[in-house]
């Protein structure tokens, strides 16, 4: 597995050495603002957990770990789809790009479906945002993240429309890169939410 990955990774780093960062500085400021917001809530979670160890020791075991795991796999796969879409546009293949972005939207919809099922599962088990401070933070973080997924889906949808209208080509596709960066930000945040809420005991 490692040898399968190591050589393409080294090759990519060498190829990118003279390349500019994707999108533009305004997109990166937005991405950083969003990441900072979530980082502050991660720190709040650490503080609240330290003051409420019993509630946080029991919390992850009361959640639907399968739903968290499936949504993690879905988001990672959606990031892969977005990256494939950008790669297709870099080769001037607009139709292929549209297919990959469409896949991203479908996976985003699947994420929303799994999240809805998870919230219903919680309700059936008698848990809501007022159960205890663990569930308050769980609902705040996950619902806030869900709203970002919705915004990301709108952004990808707009990038699809512009791709369909021929606004992007192999040389000029900064708007597509911006939408892709926003979507990757959503995935990056979930990479930390998953262990904090579902895995660490």
């Amino acid at each position: 597995m490692l040898s399968l990955v190591a050589s393409p990774l080294a090759l990519a780093a060498a190829e990118n050495a003279s390349r500019r960062a994707p999108a533009n500085i305004a997109v990166w400021i937005l991405v950083w603002a969003e990441l900072t917001e979530f980082a502050l809530f991660f720190l709040v979670l650490l503080v609240v957990r330290a003051h409420n160890p019993d509630v946080f020791a029991a919390g992850p075991g009361q959640l639907n770990t399968l739903a968290g795991l499936v949504n993690t796999l879905l988001l990672l796969t959606s990031s892969f789809c977005v990256a494939r879409g950008v790669a297709a546009m870099q080769q001037g293949r607009a139709r292929r790009c549209l297919h990959w972005l469409g896949g991203t939207l479908l996976i985003g919809a699947a994420y929303l479906g799994v999240k809805g099922w998870e919230y219903q599962w919680n309700a059936a088990a008698g848990f809501d945002s007022r159960t205890n401070v663990f569930f308050t933070l769980y609902y705040y973080l996950t619902f806030n993240h869900l709203l970002h997924v919705l915004v990301g889906m709108c952004t990808i949808g707009w990038a699809m429309a512009r791709t369909h209208w021929g606004h992007f080509n192999a040389r000029e596709h900064e708007g597509l890169e911006g939408a892709a960066c926003y979507w990757h930000m959503i995935d990056l945040v979930w990479i930390l939410i998953f262990p904090l809420l579902y895995v660490l005991r």
Binding site: P8, L9, T65
Partner: peptide, 29 residues
């Protein structure tokens, strides 16, 4: 240029690391 082989390799590696993390949650309290 993002090539197909690289992206597929990274995606598979990400899925593997995620599954190992979830397994850790199950086997160790």
């Amino acid at each position: 240029m993002l090539n197909r082989e690289l992206l597929v390799s990274v995606w598979l590696l990400l899925l593997a690391v995620t599954l190992i993390s979830a397994l850790l949650a199950d086997v160790s309290a």
